[in-house]
C-alpha cells in the first residue's frame, strides 16, 4: 500500500474517533444535566477508580518528589551557585506539571486501559447487545458513572499527588540541603499561589473528563476476539497519552494567558 493511502486511512480513522468522542461527550453531558443520578454506580466507580490506583500514585509521586529536588538542586548549584530557590522551583514544577500529569498518565495506563478492555470484552461477548435488549441505555449505564467518577477521582488524586510530591521534596530538602520545614514552606509561598492550584485543578478536571470518554470510544469500537480487545486497549492508551500531553500544553498556555498562573 502507498504511503499517501495509509496516511489518508490514518486521518480518516482518527477523524472518525474524534467525532465519536464528540457525540459521546454530548450524550454524557445531556445525561449529567437531565438523566438519572446513578449514585450507586458512581460511588462504586469512585472506589474502583480512586482507591485502586492510590498506592501506585503515592509511590510514583513520592519518588518524583525525591528526584526533582535532587535535579533542581544540582542545576541551581551549577548555574547560580545557590540552592535557596529549591522550594520555589520545585513547587512551581510540581503544581504546574508533574503533580498533574503523572497521576493523569497513571490513570491512563491503569484505569483507561481497564475501561477499554472491559467495554471491549463486553462488546465481543454480546453483553452490550444484551444490555440494549434489556432497555438499558449504554451511555447512561456504562459511561456516565465512570465519567463522573473519573473527574472526581482525578481531581482528588491530583491534589493528593501534589501534596505527596511536595512532602517528599521537603524531606529531601531538609535532610540533604538543611532547609527547615518553616523555611521551606515560607520560600514555597513566594513562588506558588492560589492561581497555580486553580490551574492544577482545571487540568485535572479536563483530564478526568477526557480519559474515560476516549477509553469508552475505543471500547465500543473494539473488533472481535482477544486480538481486537488488545488492539483497542493499546490504541486507547496511546491516544489518551498523546491527548493528555497535548492538552497539558494547551491548558498551560491558556492558564498562563488567562490566570497569569
Amino acid at each position: 500500500m502507498k504511503w499517501d493511502v495509509l496516511f489518508s486511512e490514518f486521518i480518516k480513522t482518527k477523524l472518525k474517533t474524534f467525532f465519536e468522542f464528540y457525540e459521546l461527550l454530548k450524550k454524557v453531558l445531556k445525561q449529567v444535566f437531565s438523566g438519572p443520578r446513578r449514585e450507586h454506580e458512581i460511588k462504586t466507580a469512585i472506589v474502583k477508580f480512586g482507591l485502586q490506583i492510590l498506592p501506585i500514585i503515592v509511590i510514583s509521586t513520592a519518588f518524583t518528589g525525591l528526584v526533582i529536588t535532587q535535579e533542581i538542586a544540582w542545576h541551581l548549584r551549577e548555574s547560580i551557585h545557590a540552592i535557596s530557590m529549591i522550594p520555589g522551583f520545585t513547587g512551581q514544577f510540581v503544581l504546574r506539571e508533574l503533580g498533574v500529569v503523572i497521576p493523569a498518565l497513571l490513570v491512563v495506563s491503569n484505569l483507561g486501559a481497564a475501561l477499554t478492555s472491559e467495554i471491549g470484552t463486553m462488546k465481543t461477548t454480546d453483553q452490550l447487545d444484551a444490555l440494549k435488549l434489556l432497555k438499558i441505555d449504554l451511555v447512561s449505564f456504562l459511561v456516565y458513572p465512570r465519567f463522573i467518577a473519573s473527574i472526581f477521582s482525578l481531581v482528588c488524586l491530583t491534589m493528593f499527588s501534589i501534596f505527596v510530591t511536595l512532602l517528599f521534596a521537603l524531606v529531601v530538602a531538609s535532610l540533604q540541603y538543611n532547609f527547615s520545614w518553616l523555611e521551606y514552606l515560607n520560600a514555597l509561598r513566594h513562588f506558588v499561589g492560589f492561581k497555580d492550584v486553580v490551574c492544577a485543578f482545571l487540568k485535572a478536571l479536563v483530564f478526568g473528563a477526557v480519559i474515560p470518554l476516549i477509553s469508552c470510544v475505543y471500547g465500543f469500537n473494539c473488533k472481535e476476539g482477544a486480538q481486537g480487545v488488545g488492539t483497542a486497549t493499546t490504541n486507547s492508551v496511546v491516544t489518551n497519552t498523546l491527548v493528555v500531553i497535548g492538552l497539558d500544553f494547551v491548558l498551560t498556555y491558556v492558564s498562563t494567558w488567562i490566570l497569569g498562573a
Partner: peptide, 27 residues
C-alpha cells in the same frame, strides 16, 4: 419494540459484576 423480544446470545452475555439474581432481574 424490543420489549417483545428476548434474545439468548452465543455467549451467555451475563454481566460479570452482578450475581445470578441481579442478572436475571436486570431488565
Amino acid at each position: 419494540l424490543r420489549q417483545k423480544c428476548g434474545m439468548v446470545f452465543q455467549h451467555p452475555a451475563l454481566l460479570d459484576f452482578l450475581n445470578i439474581k441481579d442478572n436475571v432481574c436486570f431488565g
